[in-house]
Design a protein around this nucleic acid. Structure first.
Lengths: 359, 359
DNA sequence: GTGAAAGCGCTAACAG
DNA sequence: CTGTTAGCGCTTTCAC
């Protein structure tokens, strides 16, 4: 810990220093660092050279005072223990980085009010907000609208008018799983629901129930659980040990399905034989042989790319008229659900899928 | 997407607006928002009222130009798929938030050079850097030193002089696991190593090897794997299917242990009976009944708290003379390793531990 | 294509 | 305790 060095630490070079070294004005150096400004090639190279020598980088704070762009986008997440979220955060971060944007992280807990959040966002002057958290207040969106702050919601529908949504294929996924379970000749269908009122859980249920009805099956037993692992565990215990035990259980996401899996095994039920348990997301660990969860994928790469695409358009002022972007997923067949006699096939990447119409 | 509203969006109020509304000078409003500045209570309340009415928050960018403090701290992480990292990031974020600091996220990949990183850090004017990533260049630390940027390394030792480290109890943990495995009467010990040269992996091995030697056992077979799941999986396959199969395998972290677990089961070996596999971290999922990994904990809460404590001190200019802070963990006994006949006990929180000296 | 000058929103001396 | 003043580092008209 060189205390001396710290004291004489090199104060970062300013545009002034660079200008002087290059023998030009500060405007010249500003222009060389501004996208699409007109500078003579000769000047530019002189400036660049000086900048490199001094390790100069324009100070974003000072710049943002003028340009009103901080190059920071805030992301709010709640369930970092659900592997889906770190994965998507990583993708978004990686896609934003080459564009010069960085993520400012907000770990929320769902319950808090929007007031302080928006205050902070303005405090930091973020350019946009990604809402990947559950249960934010709709007023937040209204306020962001007023403040002119672009918002993209990830897997989160809202009654409010502001903000554009990027969502997985919830309805179709739920329906596909239902058809798969029907083909597996199950009889008593249940749904382990996520937090009430959260669109992703509701939509998955809607698709599930619709396809069940279409197949002439009874409506599923809906068990309120919530997205948290512990609550899912408790709820799964109730259903699986109760009198009307389902033989097919669709869980609102993989993380909840893992909870259900544990419960089943603890109660002597072999998933895939005595009971079928399926999830949603196709989180990385669901492919682990020990878990081998049958699920419907939410492709993190595609989702992240779409979020970034939409975000960038929004920040560029291009009002997006599509307010909802749906990213398709696919059924991934593994071992926690009984497999139909026909229709199983292999995708190009080696995962297994299922084809309803197959012989 | 109210295009009209966006156009007439309320430009955020400035200190000038507040000053005018409150009938005071801009300095007065600045002072009310500055910690420990002297303002008459009367003035303060008038300002606060005006500020609330206008939803005023001082602009951090402008402020930072003067104070040279951005209130943002950068955190570099590499293995977001290892649950340990999201968990620690979450804790740090939560502990920093009440102090007004926010995390700017850098997802690195280990290989990249430090140059652009440091450039970016200065670009954004971050107040400090948390290095929770693997394999950063030591030059980075030197440069941060020169730039006067406080650095805390999480579980990452470095030959460089700059930066303070917060680390888990690697050596003692490795030793504890060794003793536990010895008590379990194993004979052929192995270590599934993380990336070479990374201190956490090396230290765990050192403790393991030392305790093994002390117990009169042969030195462990060291298998180079790396922290990545896939590579750990491949390496585990090699050892567990090779001629000299160990009966006790210590993996550099839980995530790698999970890989080993899968490999063992796939090869007809029941962990905890035919082979003992232990990890390090005590990541949340290691407690899942399906996984039930015996491991040595790295308490994320304590680790996060320590990081924040150190960070804050550093940013306050208090040069910390302790350059390394070690956070103790504990052995957590579950099902993937054979249990000694004696010495198993239960912690206050219900987890099981093991006591070497017990009857 | 370039430099001079003004100013983004704020804080920190400095007088009072 | 308060207001006035200067200036943080940068971009951006505006003349040239």
């Amino acid at each position: 810990m060189s205390d001396d060095q710290r004291r004489i630490r090199t104060k970062a070079a300013t545009s002034f220093d660079v200008a002087r070294l290059a023998g030009v004005s500060r405007s010249a150096v500003s222009r060389t660092f501004t996208q699409g400004a007109s500078v003579a090639p000769e000047t530019r190279s002189r400036v660049m050279e000086a900048a490199k020598a001094l390790r100069y980088r324009p100070n974003l704070a000072a710049r943002s005072l003028i340009t009103r762009r901080s190059m920071i986008v805030a992301i709010a997440v709640s369930h970092l223990d659900n592997q889906f979220y770190p994965a998507i955060v990583q993708r978004i971060s990686e896609q934003l980085a080459p564009l010069g944007y960085r993520l400012l992280l907000y770990v929320t807990h769902g319950e808090e009010s929007h007031e302080p959040l928006l205050g902070e966002l303005r405090h930091f002057g973020v350019d946009a907000l990604i809402l990947a958290s559950r249960g934010f207040a709709p007023e937040l969106l209204a306020e962001c609208d007023l403040a002119g702050l672009p918002v993209v919601m990830l897997n989160n529908a809202s009654p409010a008018s502001h903000g554009v949504m990027v969502v997985g294929d919830n309805y179709r996924g739920g329906a596909a799983l239902a058809r798969f379970l029907i083909a597996g000749e199950h009889r008593r269908f249940a749904y382990l629901a996520g937090d009430r009122g959260v669109s992703s859980s509701e939509e998955r249920l809607a698709g599930y129930a619709a396809a069940l009805a279409e197949g002439g099956r009874d409506a599923p037993l809906v068990v309120d659980a919530g997205f948290e692992f512990e609550r899912a565990f408790a709820a799964a215990s109730d259903v699986l040990r109760g009198p009307a035990r389902p033989d097919a259980l669709f869980c609102a996401n993989d993380n909840m399905a893992f909870a259900a899996l544990q419960v089943a095994r603890q109660n002597g039920l072999a998933p895939g034989r005595d009971i079928s348990i399926v999830g949603f997301d196709n989180v990385a660990i669901s492919g682990w042989p020990d878990l081998a969860l049958t699920t419907y994928s939410q492709p993190v790469d595609a989702l992240g790319a779409k979020v970034v695409e939409v975000l960038v358009a929004l920040m560029a002022g291009k009002a997006d008229d599509t307010t909802e972007h749906r990213v398709p997923g696919r059924l991934v067949v593994r071992d926690t659900a009984r497999q139909p006699a026909h229709g199983i096939f292999t995708y190009a990447d080696g995962e297994r899928g299922w084809h309803p119409g197959a012989p």
